[in-house]
Amino acid sequence: MAKEYLVVLFPHKRRVKINSQFMGHTNTKLELEGGRYEVTLGPPKNFTPESIEIDLKNTASLMPMTVEFERLEE
């Protein structure tokens, strides 16, 4: 089954959670089955939004879907 590609952008290296499962790190390319997922980051909770819902499809290895979290200022 063809895989889809996702990059989760964040200013720092941080754990990426897909449906609450630790699935790799920010700013690297993740390879997943297509479909709907909830993306969020590991602690500390200094990022926004809290989570992002995605429908991962129509990507290519060189054209991954990107989602971005911003760092909240203390």
Partner: peptide
Amino acid sequence: PWWYMGALEPEDWTARRY
């Protein structure tokens, strides 16, 4: 399991995850 949530969308019925 983590992959279950969101896997049962009817339009995804051809997928192995579904």
